[in-house]
């Protein structure tokens, strides 16, 4: 039933991360954690998967001597997200 849906995006937490990132220019890891209510460990794993798929860029830097992780959606990620939403709409409009 969900065969057309991108398996990378069809995960609650990864989809939540992508939904946040599609609406902003970039976001810190702490912001994503706050908005998704995920644990730091789980969020790190899912962000890594999104990065490996080329859907997001992860920038690690220091800000006021503290490490900072910034996530930003890529053009590939935007395309994949749009495709996912399109497929979702097709599925939702299909008679059950």
């Amino acid at each position: 039933m969900f065969k057309d849906l991108d398996p990378i995006l069809h995960s609650q937490l990864r989809l939540a991360v992508m939904s946040v990132l599609i609406s902003v220019k970039d976001a810190e890891f702490t912001f994503l954690k706050e908005k998704t209510n995920a644990t730091a460990g789980n969020l790190s794993v899912q962000i890594q998967k999104l990065k490996e798929a080329g859907y997001i860029d992860v920038i690690k830097q220091f800000k006021d001597n503290y490490p900072q992780t910034i996530c930003k959606i890529t053009a590939t990620g935007i395309g994949a997200f749009e495709e996912y939403v399109k497929n979702l709409q097709v599925y939702l409009t299909q008679p059950k």
Binding site: F2, P7, H10, S11, L13, R14, L15, V85, L88
Partner: peptide
């Protein structure tokens, strides 16, 4: 939020919204 891959299309939409 869990890493749940068995959620429905409606739930997907809810997450996005």
């Amino acid at each position: 939020m869990e890493d749940n891959q068995k959620f429905s299309a409606e739930q997907s939409l809810q997450v996005i919204q």
